[in-house]
């Protein structure tokens, strides 16, 4: 099994405040990894670091065996950012938003080919929105808009899918639809990294869970039992970790 993601001693800081410290992580092909943890534990920062959206303050990250700084094979990665909705200041149809995900696979300056259009249709079908393709994104429910963003990530036929809280604020029916869509992808060999507050219907898919607390890996192993999920939430199980560490510089005052 080859390493899709390899992280060695990585750290990230925002305005000199550490957000992630000394992270070691290897994700291999076909794994479905859930990244769990309380708010502020560094879950989102971890995946944003993997994608080069926040700079490293130490350590290294490789994607598909290439150091992040030199990585350019972006079509192999599908990213579903954490969003309240998929709408902006100008209306766009579901198809238009999903088709923008195909850009990395399209040759610049050329019109969309039949293969491009077929990829968009397939992605819409996987998330169950093909019959709503011509509607304005802004008129869809929150769960449906989340599915639009997932379809957008799927159009470039990625080998690694990174999802940042795809089910937050989404009703249970849409969560189940998302889990079904992910099941199809996992069966076709896609590696998945999924940031979640709680797993819900996705639980059955997950092969490995990483729990973060205060920017460090607290637990890395098989996913927690659904019934006891909340016990693994560090906010409940490990209250001392939820409190911010006292800045050492204060000792000088």
């Amino acid at each position: 099994m080859s390493a899709v993601v390899q992280v060695r001693g990585a750290s990230v800081a925002y305005d000199r405040r550490p957000a992630l410290s000394d992270i070691d992580l290897t994700v291999t092909t076909g794994e479905v990894v859930a990244v769990l943890g309380a708010n502020g534990s560094g879950k989102s920062t971890l995946v944003r670091m993997l994608l080069g959206l926040v700079p490293l303050t130490g350590g290294s990250v490789s994607l598909f065996g290439t150091p992040l700084g030199r990585f350019s094979d972006w079509p192999r990665i599908g990213y579903v950012p954490q969003r309240v909705g998929a709408a902006t200041g100008v209306p766009a149809t579901v198809r238009e938003v999903v088709a923008s995900g195909r850009l990395p696979r399209m040759s610049r300056l050329r019109r969309a080919t039949a293969a491009d259009r077929a990829a968009v249709d397939r992605a819409l079908e996987v998330v169950g929105l093909l019959e709503r393709a011509e509607l304005s994104v802004g008129t869809l429910s929150g769960g449906q808009q989340q599915r639009v963003l997932i379809a957008r990530a799927l159009t470039c036929e990625p080998a690694l899918l990174v999802l940042d809280e795809p089910t937050s604020g989404v009703d249970l029916a849409s969560q189940a639809a998302l889990a079904d869509a992910l099941r199809l992808l996992v069966d076709s060999g896609v590696t998945v990294i999924n940031v979640a507050h709680e797993l819900g219907p996705m639980h059955a898919l997950v092969t490995r869970a990483i729990t973060l607390a205060d920017g460090r890996v607290l637990h890395d192993g098989p996913p927690p039992e659904p019934d006891h999920l909340h016990l693994h939430d560090p906010e409940h199980a490990h209250p001392p970790h939820a409190a911010p560490p006292a800045p050492s510089a204060w000792g000088l005052l």
Binding site: I77, A92, S100, G101, L103, P104
Partner: peptide
């Protein structure tokens, strides 16, 4: 006409466009 598709992607979701390699 030439870079409209790219401009749409960037103005729609800048972070996503970065990960897409634009």
């Amino acid at each position: 006409a030439v870079v409209g598709r790219e401009l749409f992607a960037v103005c729609h979701d800048e972070e996503y466009a970065r990960v897409a390699g634009l």
